[in-house]
Every structure is written in structure tokens, then in C-alpha cells.
Amino acid sequence: MEWIVPFAVVLVLVLLPLVVASGRRSNVDQQARRLAVVERKLDLIMAHLGIREPEPEAPGAVLQELLAGRKIQAIKIYREATGVGLREAKDAVELLARQRGLG
């Protein structure tokens, strides 16, 4: 019976942070869902109005890397300069290469 009080204290000290963390995670998940809904609505409005998101300008270093045959390095530079994801950067660099006839 003497072990019940220390066990209860340890149990509370272990479970309390888990409960607090799950509450924070739930809040973040809720915010992410709300943001996704707002982005979807904005995309629908832009499509309805015929507005296209402008492509970010490729820095000159991207073209230099493409001319040197270093496509992966060009993608890295594009990502750093524009802040887009890997897929978007790859697509943009490949489009730039096709527009310039660089294969």
C-alpha cells in the first residue's frame, strides 16, 4: 500500500504532459484544416476570375547551372531563391530548360 502514492504521483507526472501535448497538436491540426479550406476557396475564386498565380522569376544562377548541365544544382538554387517545394522547383527548372532548348 505504501507504493500507491508514489505510483499515483509518477502516473500524473507522465500523463499530464501527454494530455497537454495532445491538446496543442489538436489545435495545430484544426488550424491546418482551416487553412486548407481557405486555400481551396481562394483557388476556386482565382479560377472563377481567370487569375493565374504568377511564376516566380528564375535567378540567373539557375540558367547558368542549366547551361553547365547541372540540373540538380539548378533546382536547388531555384528552391532557395523562391521558397517553393521540390516538385514545383523541378517543374519550373525543366520548363525553363525546354524554353531555352537545353533538353
Rank of each mutant, 00 (worst) to 15 (best):
L49S: 11
I51G: 03
L35K: 14
R33L: 13
P17A: 15
A32V: 07
L42V: 02
A21W: 07
D43P: 00
R24W: 08
G60F: 00
L11T: 15
A47W: 10
V28W: 15
V37C: 01
D29A: 09
P6A: 08
G50V: 03
F7L: 10
Q31W: 09
V5L: 05
Q30Y: 12
P56D: 13
R25M: 09
I45F: 13
V5R: 15
P17Y: 12
A47L: 12
K41S: 08
V37A: 11
L35N: 12
N27I: 11
L13Y: 14
A36G: 12
L16M: 10
L15P: 02
E53H: 01
L49K: 14
I45G: 04
Q31A: 13
Q31Y: 08
V37F: 09
L42F: 08
L18T: 09
V37L: 14
R34Y: 06
R24M: 11
P59K: 00
R24Q: 06
L49M: 11
A21F: 09
L35S: 14
L16T: 11
L11E: 14
P56Q: 01
D29H: 08
P17L: 09
I45Q: 06
R25N: 10
V20K: 02
R40I: 05
V38F: 05
A32W: 10
G60H: 10
D43W: 13
D43R: 14
G23Q: 05
L44Y: 07
L13S: 04
